[in-house]
């Protein structure tokens, strides 16, 4: 019996997309599962932190397409336009029935709009879509700076959010500010802003933090021959300190945790009631 199927008998191949994280350091952070997604894809798109990392990725797959060029020259194109183009170019391949892998540096779902959006669009159109986590800049920060977010809490904000929106801060927890190097960019086109913009940020932060409070400026490594860079200054000095777009600012807590005596009493009463109940039942 002839079991060969004609092309019209075959089901239409269904496209899919997996957004994976490459981690922060070339070669050190890629998970086996993310590598498998890359190797099994028909097409790989890449938005990476470093051109060398992109070269390394190209060794894993013959068809790696960089998304960097969509930024243009970085002078007059709103970044949201770039990110929408990324979604469209990826979805074009998914709709064509391709198995697509989109590779982002760090974690694909952290401070990244396109991966979430392309997964939403793909699922809405009936395609399989999946996100595979990666080691993020936040993860590296905890290790390199020595912060445990569970100790007294940790709040993260894209720095510009604090300027565009009235955002309550908790000075009892760590404050981590991302993309301070381009804080306050109303145009959404620039890749850096100057001291005047950082001064506005400092003015906002000074409502909750004294100006002599420590500010830690952190940049993680992206190549295995690099070490993280950690600089310490004060909030007052922040405007006059050069901060690049890939650096992160951390403000340690400025207040101690305050015990909630009323709730503690309530919890003690619950404990006592449970012990009493256990003793009564056990005594029968």
């Amino acid at each position: 019996m002839d079991t060969a199927q004609t092309e019209t008998d075959m089901p239409n191949p269904r496209g899919s997309i997996a957004c994976v994280g490459l981690g922060m350091v070339l070669g050190s952070h890629l998970s086996p599962l993310s590598r498998s997604h890359i190797e099994q894809a028909d097409v790989v798109f890449a938005a990476l932190s470093d051109g060398i990392v992109e070269l390394w990725l190209e060794r894993m797959h013959p068809d790696v397409r960089s998304l960097q060029s969509y930024y243009g020259d970085g002078t007059d194109k709103p970044r949201i336009d770039t990110y929408r183009e990324w979604v469209e170019v990826m979805m074009t391949e998914v709709r064509a029935g391709k198995k697509v892998c989109a590779v982002f540096y760090g974690h694909p779902g952290v401070f990244a709009w396109s991966p979430h959006e392309v997964i939403r669009v793909a699922r809405e159109e009936g395609f399989a879509a999946h996100m595979e986590p990666g080691i993020s800049a936040e993860d590296c920060l905890y290790a390199d700076v020595g912060i445990d977010p569970g100790r007294c809490g940790c709040q993260h904000y894209e720095a510009t959010q604090l300027l565009f929106y009235k955002t309550p801060l908790n000075p009892q927890a760590y404050l981590v500010l991302w993309q301070v190097g381009l804080v306050g960019d109303l145009s959404m086109k620039r890749f850096s802003t100057g001291p005047e913009y950082r001064q506005v940020l400092v003015d906002v932060l000074s409502h909750d933090y004294p100006l002599d409070h420590e500010a830690i400026i952190y940049r993680g490594a992206t190549l295995p021959i690099q070490q993280p860079r950690i600089r310490r200054t004060t909030l007052r000095e922040l405007p006059d300190t050069d901060i690049s777009s890939e650096e992160t600012v951390v403000l340690p807590p400025t207040q101690s945790l305050t015990s909630n005596d009323e709730i503690l009493r309530r919890l003690t009463e619950i404990d006592r009631a449970q012990i009493t109940s256990a003793n009564t039942n056990g005594g029968i």
Binding site: G51, A112, W113, S245, E246
Partner: peptide
């Protein structure tokens, strides 16, 4: 293609 020239995708504010 580094973030020195091209910042990472950011949340859209």
């Amino acid at each position: 293609g580094s973030v020195n020239q091209n910042p990472p995708p950011s949340n859209i504010h």
